[in-house]
Amino acid sequence: MNEAQIIDELRDKFGERIGTPERLRQHRIVVTVEKENLLDLAKFVKDTYDLNYAISVSGIDYPEQNKFVVVYHLCKMSEEGHLPLVLTLKVPVNRQTPRTPSLISIWQSVEWHERETWELFGIEFEGHPKLERLLLHEDWDEEFPNQFPLRKDFLLEDE
């Protein structure tokens, strides 16, 4: 299973429903997918390529393009170790109504990462069982209502 094969297969299988899979460099493939098709794609990559190991979930804020991007990094872990390949799923989310389906039903390990992203970006993950305060202090909402520290419009004092 090499990277070109995966790109071809994904293109054949999903066609217009996903953005063009892109090979950034060795072992790195990036796929952009709208949130409507996210669950299908996630299920497909997990079943077909056995990408059973979610490394990280991050959010990116693009205020000019009025969107967030939720980024999943996935890889395969077998008894003999990691596969060096890392598949990146990028999910653009509207900045006004930041909602996206949670992938916790497919990868259990995204639970804490999604919770962190929810807290620091304000992106709501539908179907996540526990979106509660994780890293910020408990009275954050009273001090900074509706502000999320990793968004670009949250300015630090020395900026």
């Binding site: 072992h27 872990m77 077998s78 008894e79 003999e80 170790g81 990691h82 596969l83 060096p84």
Partner: peptide, 11 residues
Amino acid sequence: SGVRGDIRKDA
């Protein structure tokens, strides 16, 4: 837990 996962070897 018996998984030989180590980036130093794998990547």
